[in-house]
Each structure stands twice: as C-alpha cells, then as structure tokens.
Write a protein that binds this DNA or RNA. Structure first.
Lengths: 417, 417
DNA sequence: CGCATTTGTTGTACGGATGAACTATTACGC
DNA sequence: GCGTAATAGTTCATCCGTACAACAAATGCG
C-alpha cells in the first residue's frame, strides 16, 4: 500500500516560525498551487504569474516542481484563436494524489476516495445497525474496508495522502480521542489504532463538521460562500461554522451544539437535562411525533406525508399556501428559526446551510425559518440572510473528510516535491 | 502635529500575496518585534535569536532597524553574575510611538494615549449627557480634544501611529460607517471627517469590541487568556469574541448581540420586537426595576442596595447564603447564565469575562450564572468553565482602542523602519 | 513570408538569511 | 594581576530564491 510517509500534515499552530529562504519557496509554491486549483478555468504559467503577481520565470520553476510532484498536470497546448505562442493550461492532476474519507455512523460505515480534481474515485458504503455496537469490531471492519479501497487505488498508481475518520460525537482534535458518541454507545477511546492502517496518517473529526466542508466543493454557481453556518438535523442537531473556507472549531472543536439552545424554558424536558431545547422541537424524533408518525420512521415517510398533505390542501381548497410553496408547515420551523436567530445574532453569519434531514424538509421549514429570522435578527435590515439546502450528496462527511485531506496537501505542496 | 503618514495600516485580508525577498524581512521583523514585546522579561539579541530560531547575525540587523525606528529601546547592559560579555536587554520603547483611543458614549467622551509599554501617557475623559445628541457638534468637540492631546504628545517628541474611535452602536468596519447608535440617537454617518484630524489614520469600532481588547493588557497573572468571550452589561448588553488575542468579527463585525438572545418567549416584549430577550432580564434598566430602583438610577445605588441586603441577611439571621458569598442573588443571574450557555454551546469558549455593570455586580450574579452554565453547557463535564470579572478599568474601550492601534504597529513594524 | 504577439526559458543581478570567524566584555581560577 | 572560559554582538563570504531583461518558441495576420 503506497502511503505518504514523507508528507507530514501540519495544522497545529505552534506560533510563528523564523522565515528562511525556503519558507519563501514554500509560500509561493502554495500560492501557485492555489491559483491553479481555485481558478475558475485552467490557467497557463503566464496566467498564474498575472494572477499571483509573481514573475513568469519564478512561476515556471514552481509549476515545474508541482508537475514533478504529480499535483498539477499540463493539458495539451490550446491554440485559442489569439496571436502568440499557445498557452499550456494547468489543471489539478487527476488520479494521482488522493484523499481517503472514512466514517462510522449509526446506520452505515463507509470509505470514499477523492482525487485532486474533486472526482470520486472509489465509494464504498456498507449499511448496518451500529447503535450500541462494539468499537473494536466495527473499527476493525472499517479498517479492512479502508485497506481494501486504499490498496485498490495504490495499485492504480495513486498515492493516498491521508485519511479523515468522521464520527457522530464529541471529538477532541488535539488528543485525537473520541470523548463520547451517544448514538453509537461509544466513549473515550482512540479509534485510530484499531483501524490498523499502518503509517497512513489518520485524523478524526466530528461528522457534521466534515459534512460542512463538503459544501465547499465545486466551482458551481450554487457553491456555498466562503463563510457560512452548516446545520445538520437528524436525531440530534449539530452545526459547524465555516469561516474563510476553513472550519472554526473554537477551543476544542465542541462548538455548534445548536440542538441544545433553549427555545422555550417551559418546553418539554430534554435528554440533556434542560427544558425546551431545540432538539425537542426540531429533532427527527420530535418532528415524527408531531406528524403522528412513529419516532423511528424513515425520513421518506415524513416527506411522503407532507407531500400528500400539500396535494390535499391544493386539491381540496384550490388555494396555494401563503408562502407560495407548501401548505403544511412543520411546527419545527419556528423553533429552528429561533435558535438560528440566536446563532446569527451571536456570530454574524449571513448564510445558513441546512443539511441532514433538513435538506429534504426545507420546503416545509423555509417560510417559518425565514420569518422568524427576519423578526429576530438585529442586523436583518442591513444584511441579506440566505437559508439554503445542502448541496453535497449523501454521506457528506465522507466527501468532506477526503476533501479535508486534499486541502492539507494543497496547503503544503512543498512536502510533495 | 506629528502623524504617521507613511504607516498605512493593513487589516483587510485581500488574499495571499506573492512573497518576495522583502516579505521575508517583514515577516522576521515582526517576529523579532513580537519576541521583544511579548516576552515575559527583557531579552537580549542573543535571547531573541534563541527564542525565534533566527541566526544571531540576522537578529542583530533586525533589532538595529527596530531601534532606529524607535519601536525598541536598549537598556543599559546588565552584568548578571554570569561569565561572558553582558547582554543588552531590549524592551518596548516608552514614550515614542503611541496609540490614540477615542470614544463617544452616552455619558462621556474621551481620549486616551498609550505607549508601546502599555503605559497611559494622557487620559482625558469629559462627562456629558450625549443621548440624542447632534453628531456634528459632539464629534467636533471630540476632535478638538483629540488634537489637543495629540499635539501635546507630539510636542514631547512622540509619534501618534493612529486612532480608534469607539462608538456604542453597529459599525461596519469595511465601509467605516456607523450604521446606528440607538443610545446616542445617531444613524448612518461617517464620523471620521467631522473629527478634523487631518491625515491621522482613524478607524472606528464598536465600543464593547474594543473594551474586550483591553482585557488582553498586561502580563499579570490574572490576564485574560488568548481566547475568551467578553460580555458587557449596561443599558444594552453586547459581547465580543476574542480568539488567539484577536477580535473575531464575523462577516460584518455585528456579532455578539447576546442582549437579544431569547431567554423565555413568554417573557416581556423587548424594544427589538421579540419577547423575552436577555436584555429584559439582565439589562441595566431591568435590573434596576427588579431591585425597586428607578430605571435611571446609577449603578452605585444598586450595588449599595445589594450590599445592604447582604449585611441585613447576615446580621439578621446569622446565616450566610448558600453560595457562601452573597445572600441577595439578582434575578438577572439565571437569565444571563442561560444566554451564556447558548453562547458556549454554540462557540466552545471556556472563559467568560464580564464587563460593564456586570463587573461590579458579579458577586450577586456568579452563583446563578455558574449553576446554569454547569447545567446547560453540554461540554461542561469535560471543560473548566471560568467566569471572571473584567480587569481593565473604566472606559476600557479607550484603552482597547489605543492598544489596537499599537497592535497594528507591532504587526507591521516594517512600515516604521 | 515578414511581423506583431504571446508563452515559456535562460542568464545575470540583487536582497536576505546563514554560519563561521572575529571582537568585546565579563567571571573565575591561580 | 593574568590567562582562560564563556557569552554577546559584529563582520564577511556563501547560498538561495526572486526579479528583470533578453531570448527562443509558436502562433495569427496582412
């Protein structure tokens, strides 16, 4: 299995270091790599020079190193109807250096490999009921899956730069320990050694946090902005804060616990001990109960019920709902809006991305959420608040984890030359 | 008036730039300056080299430039009982480059000058009733005060690096406009030109945000940690988020509006239109009303009343209150604790600094605040939450503003060589 | 086919950090 | 008192990376 023993990933901030000559090289190497990776369309060496402000000669040597490191690839020179020597377009190298996303969740485990272009190279998701499971057994199974996938891509000549393991619980990014994952029934363990992935650098992170990073994918016109809040609704409700395309983790990465913001202190008691937490109104079980469904019904059942009600309302009265989209608003909407208003008042973000179950339920939530936000957010008159559905597909944490690995590669390309 | 026309201050992030040779110099110049300024005790050139990892030769040339720029000063060589040539201790230069803090608040305006050692060089606070005042008149008066102060220090050979104007309202740091300051009755204006301070770079900021920065002062053992939340209670309640010794402003600097976190949707109507905002429980007027005092009574009256009640409780029954410190807990405490719990759950901060009126009221708030936090913060079992009183003295925003100017100088010493 | 135009490369110059050698200044032992 | 060790600070040759200018390569156009 080909792994990257040389590429040590650095994210721990150990204070600013002395800048030597090679620091210049590292900085500019990253600058050039970013220009190539983040440009809306392929740039030539000359284009990179113009975009970065570096001299053409400098860019040439840097690009040559990136090409040698298999991070950047040259496309055939394109003679674009313009005078002059044709430019050589530079693009992220496909199928060369790849990132591995791993995840253990309540009802599945999976492994996904992305290459530098953002393409999914391998995708393996194994369903399973993993609440109250044995960590040793589950992690060994995931480890086997990971090795299988990793060996496969290595056999095709790709290099796995690292892996991120997404877990639905409190993760301490500094110690690498999982403190507690209530829905798995796990607590206080180091999940990396049981995977048995040798010297492949594996880091763990919270599932919702990595799912948020998946929203940054693609240069599509519906891509998330550089800063937003990602709220993932499921049995629990978690959030991640993304600032300038990076996770804002707070001191320990335990932020975004929006599920336990108190919406009404006179409300029902929550599992956390408090009364009237958001989770008691907008958690999956609460929404099911409010709709008259069993708490463990699948999300699809709720969507079907709501769709049916809409059709009945339209057909029966011929009147389309005030909001113009859905007649049957979920009672969760106002509670969610209230908690989000607190979030926005405290953090000043203007884009809210709703993920997890909320993605599909957004049509029945949007009107209430937006109305409450408009009422309750102080800066609302001065700001365009946007509430949007998550774009990343299912198991977004797998994609986000793989992307996070590649982001680290891009942040330090010098380690690969 | 000696101002720094050459020292343009840069805080707007315009994406990473190409690193040239002189970028190296700038980076290391900052590194050396930080070592001198932030070291617990004066370092010699050799000490700086050891602390930064730079070569002694490099440090020497950099220090010489800092000394020539009057940012660093050499103390007399100290023969410290050790063999070898005595070291020359380097310290921040006193009375050379200074920062000017300005403030307009409801009941005063003021100007304060700090030098690089953190010493207060000049301090001028003028009381006045400025609610519903005329911005043009007030800003002209403040401008006169500022020129007076500035001319004075310039006459003593000091250089004013810049100024920060603290205002109690919504400030857009990108446009430099004050959007609205309800308590002053001001809205949508650029307050800098009326000051008439010529080419002195003046930037404006929210008052609570700058007050938070004042907490970073001093190497005392009670100094605030690198990251904390600062909550300032007055008529309104504002908060600032400090991460790694820098303000975290969100997208527009309009975060920290904790005063309008909903504590109880069944509560009294707030001026913002919502019901049960924190301000309705823990704002100054609410606290006065709860204590049976007129809403415009001075804070001292409330403190006196509470102290008296404590004495009566102790003397009358001989029983000390459960919390061991104060018998008469303020009803505001639980509300404040609840809003802070939301804040901590959303942001993951472990230190909360209470400023403004809360500083003096903390003895009567602490027990309830800490109890609610322990109940409501999810990560409480894993984290040591600390609630402490603000350390900076009165008009903390003046100190914070001046410090912010000097922080910018320290971040770019190359502009001064 | 010659010329303008743009891309990419080569060679020289310059700025900045380095490490080794050197000077300056003290403490300590005899 | 004097030599030696130790530490601080400076000087100088060298290395490294970028910039600028000149040059080669490859195309469109008249």
């Amino acid at each position: 299995m080909t792994t990257a023993g040389t590429a040590h990933e650095t994210t721990t901030r150990t204070g600013p270091a002395a800048a030597r000559q090679h620091s210049l090289r590292e900085h500019n190497l990253e600058l050039v790599a970013r220009a190539v990776f983040e440009g809306p369309e392929p740039l030539s060496r000359a284009g990179v020079a113009a975009a970065t402000g570096l001299a053409r000669a400098t860019v040439s040597t840097l690009v040559d190193q990136l090409v040698a490191a298999r991070l950047v690839r040259e496309l055939p020179a394109v003679t674009g109807g313009r005078a002059g020597r044709p430019a050589v377009p530079l693009v992220p190298a496909p199928r060369s250096v790849v990132g591995l996303g791993l995840e253990v969740n309540v009802d599945y485990l999976g492994a996904r490999v992305l290459d530098l272009t953002g393409d999914v190279v391998v995708d393996r998701v194994v369903p399973g009921a993993l609440h109250d499971s044995d960590p040793a057994v589950v992690l060994r199974r995931l480890g086997e899956l990971a090795r299988e996938v990793s060996d496969g891509v290595a056999a095709s000549g790709m290099t796995v730069a690292g892996a991120r393991l997404a877990l639905p619980g409190l993760v301490d990014p500094r110690t690498g320990l999982l403190e507690v994952a209530p829905n798995l029934g796990w607590s206080t363990l180091d999940p990396v050694p049981p995977l048995g992935l040798g010297d492949l650098p594996v880091r763990i992170a919270n599932e919702a946090k990595l799912a948020a990073l998946a929203e940054l994918a693609g240069g599509s016109d519906v891509a998330a902005p550089d800063s937003f809040v990602f709220v993932s609704g499921d049995v629990g409700i978690g959030a991640a804060i993304v600032v300038d395309r990076a996770l804002f983790l707070g001191e320990r990465g335990w932020n975004g616990e929006i599920g336990h913001v108190v919406v009404d202190p006179a409300g029902p008691r929550c599992s956390c001990g408090a009364f009237g937490c958001l989770e008691q109104y907008a958690g999956k079980e609460a929404m099911m109960r409010a709709a008259g469904l069993p708490t463990d019904a699948p999300l699809a059942a709720l969507v079907a019920l709501l769709t049916e009600r809409d059709a009945a309302a339209r057909g029966g009265s011929g009147v389309v709902a005030r909001a113009g989209s859905a007649a049957a608003a979920l009672p969760a909407g106002r509670a969610l809006g209230s908690a989000l208003a607190d979030f926005v008042n405290l953090l000043d973000v203007s884009t809210i991305v709703l993920g997890g179950a909320y993605t599909e339920l957004l049509p029945w939530l949007r009107a209430d959420v937006e109305a409450v936000l408009a009422d309750r957010v102080l800066a609302a008159p001065f700001v365009d608040l946007e509430v949007r559905a998550a774009q990343a597909g299912p198991q977004a944490a797998l994609t986000g984890g793989a992307r996070e690995v590649l982001r680290a590669v891009l942040a330090d390309p010098a380690a690969w030359v």
